[in-house]
Structures are given as structure tokens and as C-alpha cells.
Amino acid sequence: MIETYTVEGGGGVPLSVMAAGPRDGPAILFIHGFSQSCLCWMRQFEGALAERYRLVAFDLRGHGVSGRPERTASYTAGRLWAEDVAAVIAGSGIDRPALVGWSYAGFVIGDYLRRFGQEGIAGINLVAATTLIGTDEVPALLGQGLLANSPTMCRDELAANIAATRRFVRACSARPLPPDWHETMLAFNMTVPPFVRRALFSRAEDFDDVLSSIRLPVLLTHGTADDIVLPAMTDRIARAMPAARLSLYDGIGHMPFVEDQPRFNRELAAFVDAT
């Protein structure tokens, strides 16, 4: 049974949270990516993972049904993202969770570690994650599914925005998703206002210092056919963390947790058990 509740994040922003699984089970905190929602993790929440682990996910600020502050600074201040994660951990009553961060969530996890350190975390699974933004190096690490569509996704013109968001959603998987899943994903992507999307891309961050300091177990997950965040991004992260375990999904796109749910859930469970 999935529970929903609200916690107060950084700067007082209300964050919508969902949770499932035994309260005394090992905790996993899922953090979604750019223009998404905690609903992207439903194949984990409705599967066997929820029988053994305490699963928690939340809508990032500006996303889903969480609060949408209008000031750009509400999305560019790393302190606020870090406080959001800390608030969800505290408000959910979970102890030393493993963090699972998809795509843009690489920044969110970096913000948390930079401010609060590693002591309260059991391990980190970075899933097609980004840890670098706003530098000349970035375009070579991103795919056309993002580069070609994100500028229009940030525009206020609704028809153009919808068309670009549809292309972006299609580009998130290497093969077409089932129609019901595709429609749901398009719907929660469109709940994110253009001003939030613009603010997310206005950051300039390099988390190399954080990556090189991590002493926790780390699992790096990436699909070889990803056209949103290229595998080269994870290769770059792996060089900064030579002890991390790398798991590549052949022929899979940006969403291995959806496109190959059985393998993803199996590897995540083994990773959490080992931590």
C-alpha cells in the first residue's frame, strides 16, 4: 500500500512524498530527474522491492504536486536542494537510506553530500546521472533527445512546449513505452511550468570535488542507448570514483528502471543488501 504525505523542504517549500514497504526495512530514497515526478518510480513501488524495503520518493520542488516557488534562486541554491533531501529523510523517519538518483538528481545528491556529508547515507545508486552543468564540456555529454528539445520545453508557448515535451518523453526510452505509461509520463512532465525548467538549466555546478570524496558504496547504472544523458557522463563519473561499480544496460535508453525493471530491481536489491 502506497502512502502519501507532505514535508516542509528548504525555504518552507511543501514537498509531496510517497512511501511503501515495511517501516523497519532497509530504506531506499528515490530522487527523480528534470521535468519528471516521483511517479516515474511506480514500477519499483508496485513490485517486489516494496515487500522487503522501505521505499520513499518525492516530487522535487517545482515538480509534480510539490510547491513551485517562482524565484529562480529557489532552484539555483544548492543549500535548498540539500535541505529538501534532509527534510524528506527526517520527515519519513528513515535511517541511513540508500539514495537512488536519476538524471538531474545527480545534482541534488551532490548538493546534499556537499552540505550534510555522507554519514547519514548507506550508499548511492546514480542512474544516468548528471553531475556537471553550465560548462563548455557539458554538451558533449548530453544527447540530442535533451539538447534538441529542452530549449523549447522552457518556452511559455504551450503548443510548442507540448510538442517538444512529447519528443523528449519519446527520447527517454530506446523503444516505445507501453501507451498507458507513455501517456502518464507525458502528463506529469507537463505539470512542470516553463519557468521551473528554465531555472533548473540556469545552474552552473561541478561536483567533481564531491565525487572524489565519496567513500560510500556506489553503483553507476546507465543504458548504452541513452539519448538524454550520454554514457560518456557516467564514464566521467566513474573516473572520479574508481571504486564504484559500473552496470551498463545494452540497448537500453534513459530509463533502465522502466525499460528493464526486473534487472534494475534485482541489482538495486543486491546493492542495498551489500551496504
Rank of each mutant, 00 (worst) to 15 (best):
R198P: 11
A225Y: 05
P179Y: 10
L200Y: 11
M153I: 10
L158W: 12
G145K: 01
G145M: 03
G251Y: 01
T4W: 08
I121K: 07
L55D: 00
V138Y: 06
R68Y: 05
F201C: 12
G67E: 03
A129K: 02
T4A: 14
L39G: 04
C172Y: 02
P14W: 05
D226G: 01
L220H: 02
Y112M: 06
R167D: 14
Y112G: 03
Y5A: 11
Y104F: 15
W181P: 01
E83L: 08
Q36A: 15
G12M: 02
R198F: 11
A269N: 04
P256Y: 00
M42C: 07
G134D: 10
E205T: 14
A148R: 09
L219R: 07
Q261Y: 10
A204V: 14
G11N: 06
L113R: 00
N149P: 06
Y249E: 12
W41K: 06
N125L: 08
W41D: 05
R52F: 08
R266C: 12
A82E: 00
E259G: 02
R96M: 12
I252L: 09
G251V: 02
L55N: 00
L220F: 05
T221Y: 01
P176V: 05
A159E: 15
C38I: 07
H32S: 12
G106V: 04
G93C: 11
Q44N: 13
T165P: 02
L186V: 12
G10V: 04
F195P: 01
L55K: 00
L147N: 04
S173L: 04
D260G: 07
N189H: 14
P26K: 15
R263Q: 09
A128Y: 02
S74E: 13
A160P: 07
V138L: 11
L146V: 08
I28Q: 08
W102A: 09
H254Y: 05
T224A: 02
L29Y: 08
G33I: 02
A148Q: 10
D209P: 08
E259N: 03
A164H: 08
R61A: 06
G143H: 04
F168I: 09
V258E: 10
P97Q: 13
T165F: 02
L216R: 13
A160E: 15
A20W: 00
S16Q: 10
P256K: 00
G91N: 10
L49W: 03
T6Q: 10
L113D: 00
P242S: 11
D206E: 07
A232F: 05
A140N: 11
P139H: 10
M233F: 09
L126K: 10
R71T: 12
R79K: 12
S173F: 03
F188W: 13
D111C: 13
T76W: 09
G21V: 07
A232V: 05
A244S: 13
Q44F: 07
G9W: 01
A232S: 13
W41M: 07
G123P: 01
V13T: 15
A199K: 08
E51P: 02
I252P: 03
V108T: 13
S202A: 15
D226R: 01
I89V: 15
S202Y: 02
L146W: 10
P22I: 09
